[in-house]
Design a protein around this nucleic acid. Structure first.
Lengths: 208, 208, 208, 208
DNA sequence: GATGAATGAGGATTCATTCAT
DNA sequence: AATGAATGAATCCTCATTCAT
């Protein structure tokens, strides 16, 4: 229980969990501080404001995620790229608060979202688009103006599982973040990705 | 005076928009009242509390949506069921705040979500499951324990587009709720549904 | 003790006294509210912010004072104008907080002061200047570029007595705001004004 | 490192400027420390408390001023004493924050003011009074019970110019602390002093 | 001497809610 | 129904001060 993490990191962890659960407005600075083992006043020795803390949380969470995502876009071809799905699922499983944070942002809109979208997500999407265009198989199923929808759909599926975990858990009576559940979702996504790319007949899991 | 909508409805409309945008905690009763052309004090002549108002908003929005969804599960077969997608998309387009409301709830968790999930959504999902099981074509692609994931995926795709509209708008530089965008998404979902059900070769749109 | 004044006025009175004594930064909204018989939260039903309250206090105090001062500048000649001194002294005696408020402002500088100075005080001073220039007697004693100093001096003497009342009271062991003290100061100012205008030999009080 | 002033003096200077501008309550220890190039924590290595610092500032500023003032009261006669005005104006010009500090104190009242008034200022005033009583010329214009008012007036004029410098600067569109402005004010005060003492006809400056 | 971090006490302001009118 | 005014409980944040390093 002796906390080895630096105070700053403890604050960031506490804030990440609470912001993800309750959103920015719904989270009290005092609660974050208490969770990190401090007074609210002390917290202000580490972050200038609630807003600044929120952005630090976003930054810390989003940066490695985007780094990982950019790997997907780097490859020339998509074949064998299903491993990226594994990597992403594993990463998200390790930071399960992040998708909810992003959802809060995405749903709310505002300047922060605009910055996030234009500076980080858009370039990624563009790169992903150019990769898609280089795939021949895909054009048999989808029109070019549907490529963006494909990307969006893929993100909905990937992030949705984590972000909506509380709902899924209630509905399916099984912890959506459990190892078993995540592995099943991973396999499912792999198959579905191949299906979307028009390679449903390739290996990746036949019906049980 | 010239406003034909009842005061109660005006409040509900205002509340729906603001709750969807800012969440429950982030929305001030005063702001809702002001948006509806009242004082906060007056609002309490129509709703007992902020909580009660929130639940009324949820109720008003979710009930017809669930009614519509239950139609999907009613049918014996899925063939021709793509029209349900049209109906749903049209319904959601008319109440674009609803998916964001649901997302706020789904992400947050808590008692309200549990109630919503167990009382309303679970029966729907179960019915949908039993329908899926009656489809032969589907079993060529998916294992039985993947059926719930199929349903979840389908909901992610359908709701995600609306809930994440602010983000999509920023990223793709096109209003995700515009008529054109919605029609494209509808076509896309139709094709994708058929693909998921193993009927990608059927009509529904070949690559442009 | 049943307070007939409107709540708003009671707040303004309490604020005037406290701001005058402790300055803007040194006064707690809670103290003002308490003095007016309210909670701090209630005070915000009447004024949007501490700043707004402060400006309302200034406005309420300064406006009638400037109206009175402008009478001085209206007259063609200064003869017999000593009655203006009486009027001003009486007015200030009735609102003894005002000069201290103005001093706080004058000493502090800032945007509010700039506005006060340019919009209200400067026109008054200019009018006073033009009156001075029409007096013949004055030019025997003072050069034209000393006229502004004369006006400033006159204001220092008039306001100083009230603003520094706490100090004067301590030093001279006599309440500087007592009737006797104020009457003596009035007589003194009358004589001194005549002296400044080069009419020391006219009536207005010979050495006891 | 290259700063020749001792840390203690740098703190005193910073504090003097800020206290003069914002008053005791309006000034944050952190701001003083920052202005002096320290942390607030470090400042406490030099002064025991904010109060102690404030008193040290007051002490450092007031002591030499009072020493200078006491020279005025020492002399037997007032003739030729106009040089004291020069000395005072020069002194104040070198520490332009001081009059504002004193004004803050004078306007606010309280224990510190009482001590200042009774221990330092009152003896000075008494001495000044006894000097005035020894002047013959003065009794032609002023009654004995007006002597204190004369002294007070003289102080209002002298200190007022510095204390109200921000206001004067705004109103007259000329820096009240500029060399030209101060020289003009010095000449003015000299003439006015002679006038008050009943020697307007003596040298000291005829109308330009 | 200097500093980063911690903190209790406050301080301005918001908020949901109530109530008399 | 509508509202102005009132309020206790928060909420974000600042401040003077302390202490270990």
């Amino acid at each position: 229980m002796t906390d080895p993490a630096s105070t700053r990191d403890r604050i960031l962890n506490a804030a990440e969990a609470l912001f993800a659960e309750r959103g920015l407005a719904g989270t009290a600075v005092r609660d974050i501080a208490a969770e990190a083992g401090l007074t609210a006043a002390s917290l202000y020795n580490h972050f200038a404001s609630k807003e600044a803390l929120y952005e630090a949380v976003l930054e810390r969470g989003v940066r490695p995620l985007l780094a990982l995502l950019s790997q997907l876009a780097e490859g020339e071809r998509l074949e064998g790229r299903v491993d990226v799905i594994d990597a992403l699922m594993e990463h998200l499983a390790r930071t399960p608060h992040l998708p909810r944070l992003v959802h809060h942002e995405a749903v709310t809109g505002g300047v922060r979202l605009a910055r996030l979208a234009r500076m980080w997500i858009r370039p990624l999407v563009n790169e992903a688009l150019s990769v898609l265009k280089r795939q021949d198989a895909i054009s048999q199923h989808w029109a070019q103006d549907e490529y963006p929808l494909l990307i969006a759909a893929w993100l909905h599926l990937l992030f949705g599982h984590f972000a909506m975990a509380p709902l899924l858990t209630e509905v399916f009576d099984e912890d959506a973040l459990s190892r078993a559940s995540l592995e099943r979702q991973t396999r499912f996504l792999r198959k579905l990705s191949l299906l979307l790319l028009g390679r449903a007949d390739e290996p990746g899991g036949s019906p049980t």
